[in-house]
Structures are given as C-alpha cells and as structure tokens.
Amino acid sequence: MVSTLPVRDAAEIAGAVPDPELPMLTLAELGVLAGVEQQGAAVTVWLTPTYSGCPAIAEMAADVAHRLRDAGFTGADVRLRLDPPWSTGLITEAGRAKLAAAGIAPPGATGSAGPRGLLQLGPTRRLVHCPHCDSSDTEELSRFGSTACKALWRCRACREPFERMKEI
C-alpha cells in the first residue's frame, strides 16, 4: 500500500502558490501568508487580504486549499487574518526583484506609523526608476491603474509606460 502522508512542508506549499493578479510573485513573496499551523495531515493557513476590496483573496484561498489537498493534506483550512493589516513593506526583497523584472516598478518605503499630519499638496517627489531602462526621469500618469494596488507611470527617457505598485 502506498503511503499518502504529506512529504512536503505545508508552509512551503502554501507560500509557493502564485498570486492570481501578479503571478510572478508567490503569496509568501507578496507578504499575504500570515501563518501556517500543521498537525499531521491537517493544516490551517492564515492569509491577510491586501486591499479591502481586492477580489483576488477568494482565489488565493481556494488555490491554497487545492494545493494542500493535492499534496496529501486531508484537512486544509484557510482563514483570514486582518490584524495587522497588509502593507507593501511586507513584500520580500526577492518579490521586489521579480516585480521589477516583470516591468512593474516595486513600491518604495511606506510612511512612518506616527500620527497623521495634514495632507500636503506638493508635487509628487518620489524617485521612481523605470523598470525598463532604469532612468529616474519618470512621471506619474494616474494614481490608479488596472488593479487596486498599481499606479500608471511613464518613463521620459525611454518613453515606455509602466505600472508601479503603490505604497500602502
């Protein structure tokens, strides 16, 4: 009789699931994998949603459950964890490199967690490098793009438009 006991680590399997919107990144690299508890063939996985309205979380959860079941875990329970909230600061270095390689400028540092000041209306002074030619002569076209997490930018050096992940 062939043993069907899981041979791979549940955290490794769950973390290796690709993000449905940014398939070049794994869930671990995106920083949404908030925790994994494994007990024999039963495993519980916690995911932290990115934006409140991001529809990809449903598919992420279904994908994680499927991959775990395919790997032999009979009880795969996927739950959400809302606190602490997801931040682009959780994207790993490897994840940032993969975003840039895919033509998406990675997010910069997120703001301090200190008290919020009044909104300043100066021009955007964020140094963003073009993911195609690495020039810093870039400009924002639109703060909002094809998904909640991305903005639309343009490079004035190579004239190529590109997407950029917003800090949140």
Binding site: Y51, S52, G53, C54, S142, R143, F144, G145, S146, A148
Partner: peptide, 13 residues
C-alpha cells in the same frame, strides 16, 4: 479607473 478603484475600496470595506 480612479473613481472605480475608490468605489472598489469602499465596497470592500
């Protein structure tokens, strides 16, 4: 696109 994005955030909330 911007207004729809804002709406999606609020819908999620």
């Amino acid at each position: 696109v911007a207004l729809a994005n804002l709406g999606l955030d609020l819908l999620g909330q």
